[in-house]
Design a protein around this nucleic acid. Structure first.
Lengths: 347, 347
DNA sequence: CTGAAAGCGCTTACAG
DNA sequence: CTGAAAGCGCTTACAG
């Protein structure tokens, strides 16, 4: 059963294709009578305009691309949900690609989306991405790009972020206020801006509060899909290296939960022996035992905001208006739970 | 900067558009010399064929649609990952839509994807879907459809499933083997096939093993994004209604974890007082305390398999081969953890 | 109020 | 080996 075309409607009604097209789009210069006839027939025949032809004429696909490091991920899946929800409201569809934290894959995917002529791209960078030519090239070829969460400061485009540095500062300060005297940090990989910023926030909270910064207390976790195991391993290593650590600020909840599990296995009690603050507020963190103190990161809202910025840019471009890039910073908040509830807590 | 077209290459080289097109596609009837010239120029100019035009000519978009009830969901996000991975291998892109368990939304989304002329659709039905006209209409209009996980038996198309009934039987039998004497069931909503099948498996395990089936022990949970709270509420209700239940088979891990949390709050000990088996093997279930026994459901593999079936169908259609629908059943397995590890366990 | 015509950028059957 | 021409199904500036 072949799809219905304008031509068929035109022939059936014995009028021109032009008039059919105009009638369906409610052009003012078509008689009411003709419009009614056309619309009714289109309805009965279940006519749908051929988007391929429409795309070719209008040069837009009403589709955007999304490149995300990992789909099976509480935070990112919330972002995806936010993007899809907002896009649907505006009549846009979303193509999702997963970069697996790989720079090479990310590059290919940018290229792929570009050649599919999506109207714009939303991206959260892979951990492996240290070069940004692929992104600058993309924009030079007139494809709007908005970055979120894992961004590159150096790339000139719109961004949606949280203040990682401030949030990490708050988390570390919370450990200090809970009475911790020697605080370690499980950080993310070296490249991503957010793991750098979280590290810096940790460091500053220490020095601002009269603690010495000790690099041997900083452990690097890859934050790949092995996060949980990395948390376990770093915890094990920490116990071997230091017997005096009584607090850890950890880059991500999943890593923190790995650490928690290892501590429990080794009979280290959390929070009494070691207090822990994670980052991101995964759902899981509220149901494990002890429940995990963490920083709440608004994934759904970040997704919605990122799409909104992209949409504005797409619209401005179409109307030939000047485009100004914008960086939106979303609020985070500290969630205090059992993993930092110590008796000798400062009030 | 306007995208490069065949015409520009043709004019630059002073040959015809036809020849340029053929050269790029390695047609045998173009001279090597011409091919080389064309390809080199295309490379330098970073020529990408206009997919809109290609789609219009070839009548395919190399894009498929995916409708899924919920993105923020351990099982479904694994399915998504599997689908995207497999699709990318075959050069297909995936548009993702979330039905929010709503029949109305699902219908609209089927329509939307159809009007976008995706090459095929993958779907896991919404809980609210009890009528299948939208799906049959879609197929009648020549769009391949493959269902996975939440399927409708009555719809004639390819499917990827697990044997929910058998898995539920195994789970319930495991409770019996663990020494439970009175076993409740928190089931999913009434419509979806998998919650029906899991219920039937539960029931059959009871009767096969000399237990009386007692409808008052079956509680219905919506399994929406409120699953966790529903688990808590059903657990609360169960404690009010029955003081002799010592085992529960629960439709989904997230609901099970809600129940677990409520029991802990009320001082009911799991597994000693009440043993629990969940379903799906969410990551979370392996790290909460007590760890949750459950049925492992292969999400990633299900996604891959679903795409493979769809791909075959798309190919067969293109080659005008006959299409035979296929139902693939994937293996599940029981994961025994602390929530069923009782002392008076049968060996 | 209606319609002929050009064109979006490709692909491909056909002629030479 | 090369290319003129038709056509995919729309949209829209223009003429009447």
């Amino acid at each position: 059963m072949k799809p219905v075309t304008l031509k068929q409607i035109a022939e059936t009604l014995d009028i021109s294709i032009t008039t059919v097209s105009k009638a369906l789009k409610d052009y003012p210069d078509v008689s009411k009578k003709t419009k009614k006839l056309v619309k009714e027939l289109a309805e009965t025949l279940n006519y749908k305009p051929n988007v391929f032809a429409v795309n070719l004429r209008t040069k837009e696909s009403k589709t955007i691309g999304l490149i995300i490091p990992e789909v099976v991920h509480h935070f990112f899946s919330n972002v995806i949900k936010g993007i899809i929800a907002q896009a649907e409201k505006k009549g846009y569809l979303v193509i999702i690609l997963q970069s697996n934290e790989s720079y090479e894959l990310e590059k290919k995917q940018i290229d792929l989306l570009f050649s599919k002529r999506v109207d714009g791209i939303l991206i959260s960078l892979a951990n492996g991405t240290g070069d940004f030519k692929h992104l600058n090239d993309l924009m030079a070829q007139d494809t709007p790009l908005v970055m979120f969460d894992k961004i590159a400061k150096i790339v000139n485009c719109s961004k949606v972020i949280i203040n990682d540095r401030k949030a990490a500062y708050t988390a570390t300060k919370h450990l200090i206020d809970s009475g911790c005297k020697r605080i370690a940090h499980f950080r993310g990989p070296l490249l991503p801006q957010n793991s750098i910023d979280r590290f810096l926030g940790y460091k500053q909270a220490l020095t601002d509060n009269g603690f010495a910064y000790d690099p041997s207390l900083v452990y690097i976790c890859d934050c790949s899909d092995q996060s949980f195991d990395e948390g376990k391993n770093s915890a094990k290593q920490l116990l071997e290296d230091h017997d005096d650590v009584d607090g850890i600020f950890i880059n991500t909840d999943l890593v923190a939960i790995g650490a928690l599990t290892e501590f429990q296995k080794q009979g280290i009690s959390v929070p009494e022996d070691i207090a822990i603050v994670g980052f991101s507020n995964w759902f899981m963190s509220s149901v494990i035992s002890p429940t995990l103190s963490t920083i709440d990161q608004p994934g759904f809202k970040m997704g919605k905001t990122a799409f909104k910025l992209l949409y504005k840019e797409i619209k401005s471009r179409k109307e030939n208006l000047p485009i100004k890039f914008k960086t939106v910073e979303l609020e985070t908040k500290l969630i205090e739970r059992e993993s930092t509830r110590r008796f000798h807590q400062k009030v």
